[in-house]
């Protein structure tokens, strides 16, 4: 049960990134899967560099697609996804890489330390965002206007481009970091991240049905999906 809860936390936070990209940055970011995988490969060298590379790809995505509409930006993100995957294939194709992991005891439960850390980071990310969502500060209202209509937001003087850049950079950095942690103890391949992205996309799609309450209902949705699947 505890393992299920930790998994649900991680998928909920990944789904939050997918949802934010869709609603604020107006892109179904299909490169998240490859960014997740990249995190796994980078963790072979150091876990600390994963958010830096993730953020850098998020920035690349933002700059490359900022003048595009949602469809084209999504196509662009798919191109980036395949490019990252191909780069990993060229660089690491022939190696069976089993990522290191450490065992950790949590109230008598034996866990992989990196997975536990990923869950805690995800929980923090979710709590911070929910606080931001529920407290409704001015910046949250700005974000809401962008979500509803980007042209209106610009008319009101809101810097939608900055918000888009921040969302893409943070969500990509988050995906890359969680990839580095959550893939620990696994034998990785250049396509491994696709499953996590599709799963997160699935959770985000269900949560998105609840419109206004989508962010709040992400965790229960994630828990329900993890339990069912």
């Amino acid at each position: 049960m505890i393992s299920l809860f930790f998994s649900a936390l991680i998928y909920a936070s990944l789904a939050l990134c997918v949802l934010l990209s869709y609603r604020v940055a107006k892109v179904v970011n299909l490169s998240f899967g490859s960014i997740f995988t990249l995190g796994g490969y980078l963790s072979v060298f150091s876990l600390f560099i994963t958010p830096i590379f993730g953020a850098w790809i998020g920035l690349l995505l933002h700059i490359g697609s900022k003048r595009m509409d949602a469809s084209k930006a999504t196509i662009f993100s798919l191109g980036i996804a395949i490019a990252i995957e191909e780069a990993l294939r060229i660089l690491f194709r022939v190696e069976n890489i089993l990522l290191d992991s450490r065992i950790f005891y949590f109230f008598g439960y034996k866990l992989v330390f990196e997975h536990f850390l990923a869950s805690m980071i995800s929980a923090t990310f979710l709590i911070l965002f929910l606080a931001f969502e529920l407290k409704k500060p001015f910046s949250r209202l700005k974000l809401k206007v962008i979500e509803e209509d980007i042209e209106n937001a610009e008319l009101y003087g809101i810097d939608a481009e900055k918000a888009r850049a921040i969302v893409l950079v943070i969500s990509s950095a988050f995906f890359c970091s969680i990839g580095g942690l959550y893939l620990s103890g696994r034998v990785i391949s250049p396509t491994i991240g696709w499953l996590y992205m599709i799963f997160s996309l699935f959770i985000a799609t269900i949560a998105n049905v609840f419109r206004e309450k989508a962010y709040i209902l992400l965790l229960p949705t994630s828990f329900g999906v993890c339990w069912l699947v």
Binding site: G64, S65, M68, K72, A73, I75, F76, L78, G79, I80, I82, A83, E86
Partner: peptide, 8 residues
């Protein structure tokens, strides 16, 4: 990858 990026 190149085709998708260019197409966009």
């Amino acid at each position: 990858a190149v085709a998708l990026i260019l197409a966009s």
